[in-house]
Design a protein around this nucleic acid. Structure first.
Lengths: 143, 143
DNA sequence: TTTCTCTTTTTACATCTGTGATCTATTTAC
DNA sequence: GTAAATAGATCACAGATGTAAAAAGAGAAA
C-alpha cells in the first residue's frame, strides 16, 4: 500500500500546493494573494505554476463562470514521503538512525510529540535488528 | 556554526560524491568503475558530472601525471542536512514530530539506534514546548 | 454596447539537469 | 617509435524549472 508518488512537484509548485491543501478549494486569485506574502512573484508566475500542476494532473479544475476552482485529491503527506524517500536513497541505511537523531535534535518538538515518538520507538523495538545491513553498492560507502 | 551549504548538488552528482566520500581520494576511472555497478552511464556522463562538481568547487583536484586525483573537503552529512532542511521548509513546524515518527516507523533500525534515539528524546524534553508554533504564512496551512 | 478588468491561454527564455558524443593530449603496449 | 587505449576538455541537446510578458476571452461597469 506504500505507493510511490508518480508525479513530482518542484519547490515552486509546492508553494502553490500548500495553499490548495490549506484551502481545499481555491481560485488563482486566492493563491496569488496568499503567496504574495511570501514570494515576490508576478501574477503570471503563479498562474504558470498552477497551469503546470493542472497539466500534471495534480490539480483538479472546476469551472465557475470565467474562472476555475482548483482542488486536489493528492495528499501533502504523500508528496513529503516521496521526497524524503528520495533523499534517504542517497545515504547508507546504516546512517539512517543517526540522521533521525539529528533531525530530532534540531527540531522544535512538543511534549506530546516526544511522547508519541517514544511510543513509536517502543514499538520499533519489535522489529529492530542487531546490525542494520548496508544497502550500498561496493565503493560508495565504507561499511 | 550551523552553516547552510552554499553549493547544492543534484542527484546524479550525489552518485559521484558518494564514491569520493567513501574513497577519500579517487580517480575518474575509479568513480566510473564503481558507479558502473549501479548506473548505466556512459563514461562521458561520469566525467561531465565530475567536471561540474569541480566547477562548483565541491571537488578538489590534484594532478597526477596525465590524470587527476579527486577529493573533497565537504562533508556528506552537511549536504544531507541542507537537503533535509529544504524539505522541511515545505511543511509546517507543527507537523515535524509526526513526520519523524513516520520516518522511524518505516526505517530499519538497530537496537543501538533505538537506544540512541531514546537518549536524544530524553534530552529533548528539556527544550520541549507545550505547543509547537506554526511558522507558516497565513493561508498556507490551517493551524 | 463599448470599455475596463480580471482570468486564462500562449509564448518566452535563461538556467539547471541528465545524458552523452567528439576531439585532443597523453600513455602505454607492441 | 608508431598504434591503440586513456584521460581530460569542449560541445551538444532535450527536458525540467523559475520566472514572466503578451494575447485572448468573458464578465462588470459605464
Amino acid at each position: 500500500m506504500t505507493k510511490t508518488m508518480d508525479s513530482n512537484i518542484t519547490d515552486s509548485e509546492w508553494e502553490v500546493m500548500r495553499v490548495v491543501w490549506a484551502q481545499n478549494k481555491t481560485t488563482s486569485k486566492d493563491i496569488r494573494d496568499i503567496i504574495e506574502n511570501k514570494k515576490n512573484w508576478k501574477p503570471a508566475t503563479t498562474k504558470t505554476l498552477i497551469g503546470r500542476l493542472v497539466d500534471k494532473g495534480v490539480l483538479n479544475t472546476e469551472k465557475d463562470g470565467n474562472k476555475y476552482i482548483y482542488s486536489t485529491n493528492l495528499k501533502e503527506s504523500d508528496f513529503l514521503k516521496s521526497t524524503l524517500d528520495q533523499t534517504f536513497d542517497n545515504i547508507c541505511n546504516k546512517d539512517v538512525g543517526k540522521i533521525i537523531a539529528d533531525l530530532i535534535s534540531k527540531s522544535t518538538l512538543s511534549f506530546r510529540d516526544i511522547e508519541e515518538l517514544e511510543k513509536v520507538l517502543e514499538m520499533k523495538k519489535e522489529d529492530a535488528v542487531d546490525e542494520v545491513p548496508c544497502n550500498c553498492v561496493p565503493g560508495q560507502c565504507n561499511c
